[in-house]
């Protein structure tokens, strides 16, 4: 199982300070790429949640939250990292049959992205 880079700074901060972190911490200049999952009418909601849980190691509530964001908003940023890292995630998502793209964090993230939860991760 690959540990998502999205867990990095966020988890560290929450374990050190116990505070709720915002997406700002996740789009810091040193982690400039997003992995985006797009909605499609075929992939099962349960399957998408399963992929988020099994591949990224996300908790069930977090995986479901991201899955619902994909379903309702049409897209969701599910991980952040270097270009190389998010490209690796994208090809893994394509392997699962999810529709994934990568984008520079600065130009994207209009939908607010992920990671607005309570900072507690799987």
């Amino acid at each position: 199982m690959t540990l998502s880079v999205a867990l990095g700074p966020d988890t560290r901060e929450s374990t050190q300070t116990g505070t709720v972190t915002s997406t700002d911490a996740l789009t810091a200049p040193d982690i400039p790429w997003n992995l985006v999952i797009w909605n499609d009418p075929v992939n099962l909601m349960s399957y998408v949640s399963y992929v988020f849980q099994s591949y990224f190691g996300y908790s069930e509530p977090k995986a479901n939250k991201l899955m619902m964001e994909v379903h309702k908003k049409g897209r969701s940023i599910v991980a952040h990292g270097s270009k190389e890292q998010v490209e690796q995630h994208a090809v893994a998502m394509h392997g699962f049959g999810l529709w994934a793209t990568v984008e520079k964090a600065a130009g994207g993230g209009k939908d607010g992205g992920s990671g607005k939860g309570k900072g507690k991760r799987g």
Binding site: V36, D40, E87, A90, V91, H94, G95, G97, W99, A100, T101, V102, E103
Partner: peptide, 30 residues
């Protein structure tokens, strides 16, 4: 195209370059 999608939304050159590096192994994985 749905099984082997582009990796970027709006950058065909970057998607093609990525495809050259990864598509064969993605096909094999599937």
């Amino acid at each position: 195209r749905r099984l082997l999608p582009n990796v970027t939304k709006n950058d065909d050159a970057a998607s093609l370059e990525f495809r050259q590096l990864t598509e064969r192994s993605l096909r094999e994985n599937k």
